[in-house]
C-alpha cells in the first residue's frame, strides 16, 4: 500500500554493461528536463507575483528586479481572498471531521461486532464507491433545496461527507478488523463498557488509517470546484477555487495581481505537501496501488 522509497531494497540491478554509463546519463538528462517542465511554470508564477505588470510583459523570464509587494497588499486587503481562504479551511475541516467521526463509527460497528446486517451494511457503503456523485447533481440540488441547504456551508459539507464516507468506511473497516480481539476481550472482562473500549483502546490504534482517510479526502475537497459552483452563490460563502474564478474575472488585465492570487491559492496545500509528501502520495494513490 505504501510505496517503498528506500533505494537499497528497491533498485534495479546495476551490473556494469558497456554503454551503461552513457545510457544512465541520457536518462538522467531526460528526467532533469521533466523536472524543469514540472517546476518552471510554478517558479514563474511565484516570481511574477513580485513584479509589476510592465516587468511581467517586458522581461517574463528574469527574476524580479525590485521585488514589489504591491500585488500582495492588493490581494490581501483589496479582495475577498482572505474570506475565500477561511471558507475553504472551514468547509474542508468540518467535512474531514465528520467523515472521520461517522465513518469510524460505522466501520467500528461492522468490523468489531457480529450482527445480522453486518455484511449488508458493508456492501451498502461499498456500493457508494462505484458511483460518481457528480452525475446525480440534479436530484442532489433539488434535495438540498427542499432542505433549505442550498447556498450554505452545511449543504456543501454534507455532500462532501456523503462523497467521502464509502472509502472511509472501507479503509477503516479493513484496518479495524486487523486489530487483535484479545485487547477488547480483556477490557470487557475488567468491566469496561463498549464506548470506553472503543475510545480508549481501539481507536488510538487506528490512527494511521485515519491519517490516510483524512488526506485522501482533504485534497479533493480542498480543490473541489464543481459542487461550490452549483451549490454556493453568495460571494462571502465561496471557497478558494470558486473565489479564484471571481477574482480572475475582476483583474483580467492586472497580471501581477493574477499571479499573486494563484500563488496564494497554491501556497497552503503546496507547503503541506512538501512537509508530508509521503503521506500525500500514499493517500492519493491508495486506491490504485494494492
Amino acid at each position: 500500500m505504501v510505496m517503498d522509497l528506500n533505494p537499497k531494497t528497491r533498485r534495479m540491478p546495476v551490473i556494469k554493461q558497456p554503454g551503461e554509463f552513457m545510457k544512465n546519463g541520457a536518462i538522467q538528462a531526460l528526467l532533469l528536463l521533466n523536472a524543469f517542465i514540472m517546476l518552471y511554470p510554478l517558479f514563474v508564477m511565484v516570481m511574477s507575483s513580485f513584479k509589476t505588470n510592465a516587468e511581467i510583459f517586458t522581461s517574463p523570464f528574469s527574476l524580479p528586479e525590485n521585488p514589489n509587494f504591491d500585488n500582495i497588499t492588493k490581494v490581501w486587503t483589496g479582495t475577498n481572498f482572505v474570506q475565500y481562504l477561511a471558507n475553504s479551511v472551514g468547509v474542508t475541516g468540518a467535512s474531514i471531521l465528520l467523515i472521520l467521526l461517522f465513518g469510524t463509527m460505522a466501520a467500528y460497528a461492522i468490523a468489531r461486532y457480529k450482527f445480522k446486517l453486518g455484511a449488508f451494511m458493508l456492501m451498502f457503503f461499498l456500493s457508494g464507491m462505484t458511483v460518481p456523485l457528480k452525475l446525480a447533481i440534479i436530484p442532489l440540488f433539488i434535495q438540498l433545496d427542499a432542505l433549505h441547504l442550498v447556498d450554505s456551508y452545511a449543504g456543501l459539507v454534507l455532500v462532501y461527507v456523503a462523497m467521502g464516507l464509502p472509502s472511509a468506511v472501507f479503509i477503516m473497516t479493513g484496518f479495524l478488523r486487523s486489530l487483535p480481539r484479545e485487547l477488547e476481550e480483556s477490557a470487557r472482562i475488567d468491566g469496561a463498557n463498549e464506548l470506553l473500549i472503543m475510545l480508549k483502546i481501539m481507536l488510538p490504534l487506528a490512527r494511521p488509517a485515519m491519517v490516510i482517510v483524512a488526506i485522501q479526502n482533504a485534497v479533493p475537497i480542498w480543490n473541489d470546484f464543481f459542487f461550490p459552483l452549483i451549490l454556493i452563490t453568495s460571494d462571502n460563502l465561496k471557497t478558494l477555487p470558486q473565489g479564484l474564478t471571481v477574482f480572475m474575472g475582476e483583474f483580467v488585465t492586472d497580471w501581477g495581481v493574477l499571479f499573486t492570487g494563484l500563488t496564494f491559492a497554491a501556497l497552503p496545500i503546496t507547503l503541506l505537501y512538501v512537509i508530508l509528501s509521503r503521506h500525500f502520495i500514499a493517500g492519493i494513490t491508495q486506491g490504485a496501488i494494492k
Binding site: 461517522f102 463509527m105 460505522a106 457508494g128 446525480a136 436530484p139 442532489l140 454534507l158 461527507v161 456523503a162
Partner: peptide, 19 residues
Amino acid sequence: LLLPATLVMTLFVVWPLIS
C-alpha cells in the same frame, strides 16, 4: 454507531442516484 453514516448516505447518495 451506524445511524449517522447511513442517514447521510441515504439522503445524499442513494436517494439522489435513484431519482
